[in-house]
Amino acid sequence: MKFEKPTSFMGVPIEGAYEKAIKDQEESARNKTPESKPIIPNPSNASPEDGFVYIPSIGLYLAKEKTLKGLNWEKTHEELANQNTFMPTISQFKEFVKYLRSNPSGTKDATGQEISSILDEILTVRNPWRSEWLDAKFEVVDKTLGMFGGKTLIHYDHRFSNGSLQAGKSEPLDDYLTSDKKPGISLDDWLENANKYGLPKPDVKEGELYYWHPRNGTVAGFVADSGGAGLYCSEGPSVRDGVLGVRAAKILGGNK
């Protein structure tokens, strides 16, 4: 068998590619902090106009860009707390998407182009895979236990204090879709008629948005790739991925 050396691969010249790759790698290593922490902007010091969009219906600012990529769900909460920001709940994220979709030409904090780019990142069915954490953890209570026996609880409004993550609120879920829809549910109907936790109701209209229902021990996120986009309530909290990040949320002036 003969393997003739090519001069290029898919338009990329072979000559010099090796040296460039090593140089880039060394450069990237030099730019990392000693602890190899992800480099993120510090949203708490930024003015609301800097990288955030204000959502009037919920009185919150949500970041235009995802940060803290490569961290698991709990570690993401911890880092966000260090930045005086927090992880948006499903409902807050839903309001964010709804607000952007209803203001395609721009808001006081974001240009039309920025809004289009944010929505493309969240919703467009294309590669690569994108995903962002949302603040909801689910627990199916043992059937034999107390008043919530057999019910699914949603834990949200998490706060990180004294080295541990605590749910601010824990409530039994009702009036929500308890089966997967792949695809799908209607994006418009979800945005308009979700329950108080941001989950689609059982009678949600059919559509192209994927939906994975909550399972015991899972957390929430929003995912999109070339196969579809959807609300993912079945993610393991320990998952980490270089493209899985968070859209930091903040209240003007400080902590929630």
């Binding site: 691969f9 898919m10 338009g11 990329v12 590619a17 460039k20 590669n127």
Partner: peptide
């Protein structure tokens, strides 16, 4: 094919480096 195209676009620089190596 679309997904494959994305994969190759993202990795062509690394492949070129690998081939030269």
């Amino acid at each position: 094919i679309l997904a494959t195209k994305g994969e190759f676009d993202r990795n062509s620089q690394n492949i070129a480096a690998g081939l030269e190596m």
